[in-house]
């Protein structure tokens, strides 16, 4: 466990060192970014609808008991924009895109394609890892915007239509608490989470060993490991910023 963490940190540092190296592989980056959007956009949007609604439901019920129903909009800000949306995004990226990236790199690793690249004088970090991690980092804030938008709309509609809340007070309390900086921080969180999920997927893929079963194990570990790290990161960033 400790050795794996050390190896992960080492790979991350080596990858960072490879980032400024020219040429940047735009084609690989765009292909990966498009791939990530295509596998994670729809599930992300679909997850955020019940997420927004359930937040409105739970918070709404609780808040009604305090007689402070008009604050539902505010909870939506706290819940969706600041916390839920970046985490949902990152979980979707690591679940849908990270697992695919890990499986792809893992298969290449056990077929010795990665070794072949290195023998041909090509650094797999520069060629394969940097574009993938960059794609995850860039796509995550976009998906995060999608989750925020869809989640807020869902929570608004649920509050107004199903719970009989008043549209005016929802928006008012939302405005009272929401700041532009919330959206920025949310986007930055998503970027960090996306990069982390991508890095973990690449690390696990490149350290796959022992045939097809090894690749399966690596994919499984990617998703679990990423979830653990993301929740820890989310806590750290939230605690530091708010």
């Amino acid at each position: 466990m400790i050795r794996a963490s050390g190896a992960f940190v080492a790979l991350t540092l080596d990858t960072l060192r490879a980032v400024p190296r020219r040429p940047f592989h735009w084609r690989e980056f765009l292909q990966q970014a498009w791939f990530i959007v295509s596998v994670s956009a729809l599930p992300t949007a679909l997850v955020s609808i019940p997420f927004g609604a359930v937040l409105a439901l739970q918070a709404g019920n609780l808040i009604r008991q305090f007689g402070a129903q008009s604050f539902t909009g505010a909870t939506a800000v706290l819940g969706i924009v600041r916390e839920a949306s970046p985490v949902v995004t990152a979980l979707m990226i690591s679940g849908a895109a990270g697992s695919a990236i890990c499986a792809d790199l893992g298969a290449r690793k056990i077929r010795e394609e990665i070794d072949a690249l290195e023998v041909l004088g090509i650094d797999p970090l520069h060629r394969l890892v940097v574009p993938r991690v960059a794609a995850c980092a860039v796509v995550a804030p976009l998906l995060n915007g999608l989750v925020t938008t869809v989640g807020l709309i869902a929570s608004y509609l649920f509050n107004v239509i199903a719970q009989g809340g008043s549209p005016g007070s929802y928006l008012q309390s939302f405005n009272a608490l929401a700041e532009l900086s919330d959206l920025w921080i949310s986007a930055v969180k998503a970027l960090v989470f996306g990069a982390t999920a991508g890095m973990i997927a690449c690390f696990k893929g490149l350290s796959a060993a022992g045939g097809p079963k090894g690749v399966g194990d690596a994919v499984n570990q990617t998703v679990v490991f990423a979830a653990m790290v993301l929740f820890a990161e989310n806590f750290l960033i939230s605690a530091a910023v708010w």
Binding site: R108, R111, E112, E113, D115, L120, G121
Partner: peptide, 25 residues
């Protein structure tokens, strides 16, 4: 180096695989 199963790049045709080192270097 000839690796055990050829270690060809799965997404490239045989031509592109063999041309790869020339295009890179």
């Amino acid at each position: 180096v000839l690796f055990q199963d050829g270690a060809l790049f799965g997404s490239l045709s045989l031509f592109d695989n063999i041309a790869f080192p020339l295009r890179e270097h």
